[in-house]
Design a protein around this nucleic acid. Structure first.
Lengths: 222, 222
DNA sequence: CGCACCCGTCAAGGACCCGTCAACGCATCT
DNA sequence: AGATGCGTTGACGGGTCCTTGACGGGTGCG
């Protein structure tokens, strides 16, 4: 779930945006001052920051600069000032987008979707999707949980999905999973690739994600 | 150097933007219609696309959709329409930013810097371009992926494109791909060169990139 | 004008690679 | 001790891809 940090000193603006975001399944935290915004960014680890530039304590651009010292979290700026110099200052300070008030909530939501889309689905680093299954490589769980993968199957799967789309030779897979001494035992790869397909592919005879490149190796297609 | 594709049907707009971008060390290509924009995106591989929505042939949003079928190149939309529904449509279709005309050139440049900054320094690619196809020799992938190359085809292609523009004798190719014992089997080269042409060249009977030098050998023309 | 040479194309045989099934050894648990 | 699950190894059938041969057209040269 994507977590959004709202920063604005007007409670009403926070309220409106919070309601709209919650309705769209975002998680929301908020701050009313620049300093509390920086603190919240450190502690809550938001995926996106929506920042009003008119804050009582710190200049909005200064907030962006301090954020950028340690994080690259996307920042969407809200501002009543439409002068191009203000926009350029904020964008060059590290903001990812600049929306002038008054603005349409739909537009802001669309721009939030843009940065969310760019980051990929949340926590995508650890999970991978094969057909109907969602596979978490760190907790070693498959949902729905009607399949069970053995240790070797997990290892092979982890190596394969680590580099999606690119070709992996059998020797590479053998070295990564079984160790350098097994470089010629290609049957192991065939055996376990077939098992992974039987367990994960919808039609194991016509694999869509675990693809064989004859004479070259295997490829994981997300 | 960051390459930018400008898409607008007004020559004057192209001119102004081109001058400003060139002055800031960007590389610039341009297109006046949606179809030519799509073609340029395929062939020139821009790092950023600046797209006016009011094109004579295709709807601008449709251009974004077609781009998104095969590339995630950042798209900054220019449009005279400021209605939030238009913005939402374009952004949800895959645009990364939406700037309404009239706009400040400084602002557009700042927004270009934002997406350029996000992409980081332009990455060195070990890919080669043949016609509409982009070929990655290390991951063994072709984009768009509607062609499939076999092992020998990959090997021959790798040897050929390794030395672009210079003449390669059949004996050289045979020794590199098939090994020193096959030095006289020139039919292999003919066979596979023809297959590569059939799969990669737009008109296999009139090859543009995989060129035959009668009596001497073959030459790869980028 | 005719021939020789080279290249592109098609077809067919065969080799190779991959997927599958089965058996065996080994460890763990009951 | 028996049972179960997993890893490993061998053998076999089928399909893909490589190889090889033959043929026709184009070009250059005599």
């Amino acid at each position: 779930m994507t977590k959004i940090l709202l920063v604005d000193d007007e409670p009403q603006m926070i309220r409106v945006l919070r309601i709209n975001l919650l309705a769209r399944q975002y998680e929301v935290v908020s701050a009313a001052t620049g300093l509390s915004a920086l603190e919240s960014a450190r502690e809550d680890h938001p995926d996106i920051v929506v920042l009003d530039l008119g804050l009582p304590d710190l200049d909005g651009v200064e907030v962006i600069r301090r954020l950028r010292r340690w994080t690259s979290v996307p920042v969407i700026v809200l501002s009543g000032r439409s002068d191009s110099r203000d926009k350029v200052n904020a964008l060059d300070a590290g903001a990812d987008d600049y929306v002038t008030k008054p603005f349409s909530v739909d537009e802001l939501l669309a721009r939030i979707r843009v940065v969310a889309r760019r980051q990929g689905p949340p926590q995508a680093e650890n999970t991978v999707k094969i057909g109907q299954y969602e596979i978490d490589l760190v907790s070693h769980t498959v949902t729905p949980g009607d399949v069970h993968l053995t240790r070797t199957e997990w290892q092979l799967l982890a190596v394969v999905v680590a580099e999606p789309g690119i070709l992996l030779s059998q020797r590479y897979l053998l070295e990564k999973v079984w160790g350098p001494t097994y470089r010629e035992e290609t049957q192991n790869v065939r055996q376990y690739m077939a098992q992974l397909r039987r367990k994960l592919e919808r039609d194991p005879t016509r694999p869509v994600h675990l693809i064989t490149e004859p004479g070259m190796g295997y490829r994981f297609q997300p």
